[in-house]
Design a protein around this nucleic acid. Structure first.
Lengths: 183, 183
DNA sequence: GTCTATACGTCGATAGAC
DNA sequence: GTCTATCGACGTATAGAC
């Protein structure tokens, strides 16, 4: 029945997220996950077609959120402060998952998230400095997004949130120095 | 004889670097490396005690270089421009290896480089804003280093080198905005 | 000192019975 | 929906040839 299906599937996801986060994707075997739930490896395969799909399912919320952001700033924006602020908020909102995956790069690789993050950031680059910006301007955009992302992910979430305004100003300064001299 | 030892060991390293870079660490099996050299898996085991050690050996030059930088700026520097420039140069100098590892996060994880990079960057944070800097100042340092690192790694090496001065100025601007208001 | 032959245990994944 | 049984490939390990 549908009830049991959702129950088991959800419980598998919970256990997997905990174990992946604690000891990493590669070091967590399907046998280990199955034993915690008192089922067999083969039962997992009824709910998820592969170990990789199980991992991907865990990062789906972040994926959805980022797609929304990319669509919102699909073309060049004249409000860079808004773009940088929204990107900061997204990084903070999912910082737990991001840190979990960051501490487990093998899993991050397998999740396919990296390629997507690179693609999203390119779209945000365009939103910040336009399509065919000169090299220095693109440098400013890359540094602004890379800098604000590092603040959100590397620093404690509470500290980052408390000084959100300053974080945006820092990124904005990098962006401006990159663009100075542009027409 | 010592000659043969170096030859085989070096050839293993070359093939491994190429295959790891092309298809990733996890997806490259020791059997595959061995077959390319017309030797057996067990022969690899003679030269490198494990697959992990083989990978670590490949990132040794970067490791040495970064250790030198960390020691050079072990304590707070009053020349942030110099610190940022030196970090930029290091990222560019090893950008091929860094990009290779970046495209293969599973390998990056196994190499143990991430923890070291985080540690080096913390030392550079201290060199930039001091030991017990307030949160906004630390934000500036994190954004400055994260931004300049992204420029060096994400942008084409030629473009980055050509505009090295601007990259340093961008990072410097982020650092300044973070520190503004500090005593 | 350098390498081969062979094996062990574990992994992700599949087939088919209940 | 879950089981048992099994698969091929993997990293690792050791004994012994040369």
């Amino acid at each position: 029945m549908a009830r049991a299906q959702n129950d088991t599937k959800a419980r598998i996801g919970e256990v997997a997220l905990e174990l992946f986060g604690r000891q990493g994707y590669e070091r967590t075997s399907l046998r280990e996950i199955a034993e915690r739930l008192d089922i067999t490896k083969a039962a997992l395969y009824y709910h998820y077609p592969s170990k990789r799909d199980l991992l991907r399912a865990l990062s789906e919320p972040l994926r959805q959120d980022a797609m929304g952001l990319a669509e919102r700033f699909g073309e060049r924006s004249d409000e860079p402060r808004e773009v940088l602020g929204a990107y900061f908020d997204l990084c903070v909102r999912h910082s737990t998952l991001m840190v979990t995956l960051l501490h487990d790069l093998a899993g991050l690789s397998e999740s396919g998230l990296v390629e997507e993050v690179v693609a999203w950031r390119r779209r945000l680059d365009v939103a910040l400095v336009g399509e065919d910006a000169p090299i220095p301007a693109r440098m400013g955009a890359v540094a602004a997004l890379g800098g604000i992302q590092d603040i959100a992910v590397l620093m404690p979430a509470e500290e980052a949130t408390l000084h959100r305004g300053r974080a945006v100003e820092i990124a904005l300064a990098a962006l401006r120095v990159g663009m100075s001299g542009m027409d």
